[in-house]
Amino acid sequence: MSIYRRLFFSIAVCIVLGACQRQYVPQKVDYSGYNINVKDSGSKNLQDFLQPYKDSVAKLMDKVVGTLDSTLKNSTPDGTLGNFIADAYLTMAKQKFNPNAAISFMNIGGIRLGSIPAGPVKRGKIYEVMPFDNEMYILEVPGNILREYLDAIAGDRGGGVAGIKFQIADKKAINITINGKPLDTTARYIMVNSDYVVNGGGNFYGLKDLKKERTGYLLRNAILDYIAEFTSRNQPIKIPDDKRITSAN
């Protein structure tokens, strides 16, 4: 067989076989999920790598900043954790920027831990609850826009609030009271909120065009400063004991 015939033959074989050669197709899949736990053996390589970072983090974050007598819980439509954070915002805003601040909000998506357990609270825990470098904004909100904002909260599970109570019925806010008085849609209320929310984060754009005061104060620092007030008086951190958003259904 000449070299050409051999080449021709092998090319022909390739073409024929190539035509038969199909892509692979998944036939079977088994799934499983492993729980990762510190009790299992860890990679020494990763442990050694992490150690210097861990040391720097511990230096700043392991400081105990306060004490909780019971666990703060994140839940919907409101929870002690969210309401505690809103209390911190309102208290610090009144003290530092505007004594007439009436209401404050902590958006539900921004609460990043399920709970802060009872006992000593480390600085790092507050970073985990509120990891974002969000800033405190203070703004005067007409009652009718406030009502729309509350409807948006009602339509999105709820959140943490202070100075305000309402019920949720069919994803709308009803029976709204501000410091005990029914909402007046023609009045104006001084609101404390985050740069994230007032700029349309969470898809409510009604606050975006209102005049607002940018404080430059990190909301996480508001929480830490609020906790420090109790600690400096040798008191446990105050746990909100009232339901502020309830379901009417």
Partner: peptide, 8 residues
């Protein structure tokens, strides 16, 4: 944790 995850 990354250490137990890496080991697994």
């Amino acid at each position: 944790g990354v250490a137990p995850r890496a080991a697994l």
